[in-house]
């Protein structure tokens, strides 16, 4: 039923995967990496969480003893990760205000790892065409299954420690990743057509840099807490701050 969210028509056409990566230029890494081109401004933000954080559900990992052993207090599903009032795993990106592309491509792939039968990081962003490296650090079978709507999905078996690489050719926020073997495993990939996105860290902080001067709309997404937007204005070389606040 997830599919019911209709696919926006304008996003719908990609050209054999090569179309938009044609504008590839030297660029920084993922969301946090420095970006050379378009500009020098940056947005440094933080995501706050007010109120009591909901308890994360416990996971019954009995069938995978090797994973369970990694969690001293028993594994929980990190749906809402709050530390000192700061919310992690929030995906922030610019939704409007950017000049026309092409945009610089981050030079290194985004990475997601399967470790202890959980995904780390739980939320990851990639630019259209950018590689997503999927690692399995557990010595057991995972399958990583992407269930996108605008992109082609995939479902790869990773029976042992190994890594695979995939990319998406259409912007889509978010593409869920799941593991059929371990029903609790859940991750999200934000596919954006530019490199101006970030994921809040354990301290709630995020940085989007390499922007030209202008006024942008930022959108923050969290898997259970919803989305928020705000407008931010930055000047060349300057840095603006943005503060999102989610609450239970």
């Amino acid at each position: 039923m997830r599919r019911i969210l209709a696919v926006p028509v304008l996003l719908s056409v990609a050209c054999g995967g090569g179309g938009e990566s044609g504008g590839e230029s030297s660029g920084g890494g993922g969301g946090e990496a420095a970006v050379a081109a378009l500009g020098t401004a940056s947005i440094m933000g933080v995501v706050n969480f007010s109120g009591m954080a909901p308890a994360n559900p416990a996971i019954d990992m009995a069938e995978e003893a090797e994973c369970a052993a990694k969690y001293a207090d028993g594994p929980t599903d990190p749906v809402v990760v709050v530390a000192d009032g700061k919310l992690a795993n929030v995906f922030v990106r610019i939704t409007s205000g950017l000049p026309a592309g092409p945009y610089p491509m981050p030079s290194s792939p985004s990475v997601i790892d399967q470790d202890g039968c959980l995904y780390t990081p739980r939320v990851v962003g990639v630019m259209v065409g950018q590689d997503l490296e999927i690692q399995n650090s557990d010595p057991l079978l995972h399958n990583i299954k992407a269930v996108p709507t605008a992109n082609r999905g995939f479902n790869i078996s990773q029976p042992r420690v190994m890594s695979s690489t995939r990319s998406f050719n259409t912007a889509e926020v978010m593409v869920p990743l799941e593991c059929s073997v371990h029903g609790w495993m859940q991750a999200y990939v934000g596919v954006v057509e530019h490199p101006y996105f970030a994921v809040s860290g354990a301290d709630g902080a995020f940085t989007i840099s390499g922007l030209p001067a202008g006024t942008y709309t930022l959108e923050a997404w969290h898997e259970t807490l919803g989305t928020q937007t705000m407008d931010v204005t930055v000047e060349d070389g300057g840095s603006a701050s943005a503060e999102f606040s989610f609450g239970s």
Binding site: N155, M162, S164
Partner: peptide, 15 residues
């Protein structure tokens, strides 16, 4: 369906 491909495992030389 949940049935994954083993193509990557072959490519990775695991199987």
């Amino acid at each position: 369906t949940p049935m994954p491909s083993n193509g990557d495992a072959i490519d990775a030389g695991i199987i």
